[in-house]
């Protein structure tokens, strides 16, 4: 192979590497009448990062367990790195890293001991442990018992454990919940590095904004179904949500409302009557701006907002919208 102009991928053997990491066809897992996962169809290429979004109970964890081979599908088929996970040989699991939701470790062992235990089980080189602890920022607490760790530190140890043996597929179940913004940024940094190396990463969350659009693809799950799957920009287009223009009108909102006329899908006047929120279709955005700026002094300021991640998520997941309306984001 001519190496000039090619990025050499270290650590991972490219020979025998599947180009498709995960292929699901009609994948279902029912528990009696409860359809935890129902008829999923999707393909995930190797080396891509996927955000798996859904409210609690949408089927994210069930899907992860199916991918891990912990449970068998009740219908449909699933191929992970070229094999059926529930029937795969034990060796297959060495290629997969997993960080469960609310990861738990044995309290009495130190960080290093914990990681070395998992490294031995995975037959990963023990010398990798120190490097991984360093990488997730836990070197300072490596010889402390896990019971003294904070939630964030346990989560970091969980990530270090998932990275053992340089897995080709990494599954992270709600990894950023409870992390501060700085740790979260580090998390995404590591995820990015892995993806650049050719690994496939799936990261789940019940809050789309938490993932900050850091992944190549977004999958939105809703009561066991795949409500949306694709790059965020595509979902944004599909959702076709209006652009919000906030206009400051010191002399009353009347002129701005009448200037837009039928372009405005909706207009909301603020309580003090000095500002206005106008919702227009993406294609009408420039026209609306032209008309508003033509009003001169009647408009003091304006601000344009594209539909946010939360709004896109709620558009595809009515369940999440209901939960939000009920007052809890959980």
């Amino acid at each position: 192979m001519n190496a000039i102009g090619k990025i050499v991928i270290p650590e991972l053997e490219t020979a025998g590497l599947e180009t498709v990491a995960i292929a699901a066809r009609g994948l279902s897992r029912h528990y009696g009448a409860h359809r935890a996962v129902d008829g999923l169809d999707f393909t995930l290429d190797a080396g891509t990062t996927l955000a798996l979004i859904g409210h609690n109970g949408a089927g994210k964890t069930t899907l992860m367990k199916l991918i891990l081979g912990l449970i068998r599908p009740t219908a449909g088929s699933l191929k992970v790195l070229g094999v059926e996970p529930a029937r795969a040989a034990l060796e297959h699991r060495r290629q997969i890293g997993f960080l469960p939701e609310n990861v738990a470790f044995h309290d009495e062992l130190t960080g290093t001991q914990t990681l070395r235990f998992y490294a031995r089980l995975k037959r990963a080189p023990l010398k990798q442990c120190d490097a991984l602890l360093e990488r997730v920022g836990l070197s300072f607490a490596a010889s402390r018992r896990v019971k003294t760790y904070s939630k964030g530190m346990r989560q970091r140890l969980g990530l270090a454990q998932a990275l053992l043996g340089d897995p080709q597929l990494l599954l992270l179940d709600e990894p950023t919940t409870g992390l501060d913004p700085a740790s979260r940024a580090e998390f995404f940094q590591i995820m990015r590095e892995l993806a650049d190396r050719g690994a496939t990463v799936i990261i789940s969350s019940h809050i789309l904004t938490e993932l900050e659009a850091k992944t190549d693809l977004v999958a939105i799950m809703n009561t066991g179904h795949l409500a949306a799957f694709g790059p965020l920009d595509m979902l944004r287009r599909e959702a076709d949500l209006p652009v919000r223009i906030t206009v400051v009108t010191p002399n009353g909102t009347g002129p701005a409302v009448s200037a837009l006329g039928s372009i405005a899908q909706r207009a909301v006047v603020s309580e003090n009557g000095h500002s206005l929120q106008l919702f227009v279709h993406v294609e009408d955005k420039l026209e609306a701006l032209a008309r508003l700026t033509a009003l001169g002094d009647a408009v003091a300021d304006l601000d344009i907002a594209r539909p946010g991640l939360d709004e896109i998520y709620r558009h595809f997941s009515p369940e999440a919208a209901k939960a939000a309306a009920a007052g809890g984001e959980a």
Binding site: L68, L70, E91, A104
Partner: peptide
């Protein structure tokens, strides 16, 4: 109950 088993079962161990 504590959640250790779920992780352990994803390792190459029967």
């Amino acid at each position: 109950e504590r959640g250790c088993m779920l992780l352990l079962l994803t390792y190459p161990v029967t």
